[in-house]
């Protein structure tokens, strides 16, 4: 029996998984174990599978994913901190036939950009908004975010988030689900293969809604880790996320086809 070489294995018929061509070959700038990279990949896979690579315009935020445009191989604009929903609104209004999405962190979407988020959702812009909630400001070095959990330690809540002093964590996704302008609202995660599959399904539904001209925003929150900001090993961060973030930020669909889900 002849010896099997590598060449014999690398054949198209043996292919089980391939990186989407809508991710560039640039090395991701994210910390190992961070959810941003996975979320990028899922969005790009969905756009490729829907055949929309030449009809998509993405809007990157300010935050760790500020360089999303380096990795996502579609036309991209880099918005000012918090303003991605306004930027995306105008793109979609002027190019209603194109697919438009924004991609934002929790500081971007739920703090400095709260007004833009609420109003794009309330106007029912026909865009996809992807919201990466890691409970912290990753990019600037781990400060408290509006989504930071009670008692959680960050650089600006070094003794833990004191609710009396620093206010409550904000459930932006539930909040926008009550607005008539949102059509699909869901909360997902990307830390396990099962979660990734679900998240991808949700993203596909979100983009499909937009392609089908469904009225309103499709809003996909992804609860993600920030192991650097949380000062944990990646695996430990995922466990902490399951034990602490998920009970507060419950995963699953919140609004489907314009109707709130009884949860």
């Amino acid at each position: 029996m002849a010896e099997i070489t590598l060449q014999d294995i690398i054949k198209p018929e043996n292919l089980v998984y391939q990186k989407t061509k809508l991710m560039t070959d640039k090395t991701l700038s994210y910390c190992p174990g961070c959810g941003h990279g996975t979320a990028h990949r899922l969005i790009m896979e969905v756009i490729e599978e829907l055949g929309k690579e030449n009809d998509t315009i993405g809007v990157a935020p300010v935050g760790c994913s500020v360089l999303a445009y380096e990795f996502m191989n579609v036309d991209m604009q880099e918005a000012a901190h918090g303003r991605a929903p306004a930027v995306a609104t105008a793109i979609k209004r002027l190019w209603p036939g194109k697919v438009v999405f924004s991609y934002q962190g929790d500081g971007d979407l739920a703090a400095i950009g709260t007004a833009e988020t609420i109003h794009a959702c309330n106007r029912g812009e026909r865009i996809v908004m992807v919201f990466i909630n890691n409970g912290i400001y990753g990019m600037t070095g781990g400060q408290m975010a509006p989504t930071t959990l009670p008692n959680m330690k960050t650089a600006t809540s070094p003794y833990g988030r004191d609710i009396d002093m620093m206010g409550n964590p904000l459930k932006m996704t539930e909040l926008v689900s009550y607005l008539p302008g949102t059509y699909f609202v869901t909360r997902q995660a990307v830390h396990t293969p099962a979660a990734v599959r679900k998240a991808k399904r949700a993203l596909r539904m979100a983009f499909q809604n937009q392609i089908d001209g469904k009225p309103g925003v499709s809003f996909v929150e992804i609860v993600s880790n920030c192991n650097s900001g949380w000062k944990m090993e990646p695996v430990q961060a995922n466990t902490w996320m399951e034990e602490n973030m998920f009970p507060f930020y419950q995963l699953g669909d919140i609004k489907v086809d314009g109707k709130l889900i009884d949860r």
């Binding site: 315009i57 306004a86 609104t89 002027l94 007004a115 833009e116 109003h119």
Partner: peptide, 22 residues
């Protein structure tokens, strides 16, 4: 022509960014 009343001047100028960018 599209005419939209934005939620603030911050939003307006960023809408110009998005729209002008296309």
């Amino acid at each position: 022509m599209v005419v939209l009343q934005a939620e603030s001047e911050v939003a307006s100028i960023n809408m110009l960014y998005g729209g002008g960018g296309t």
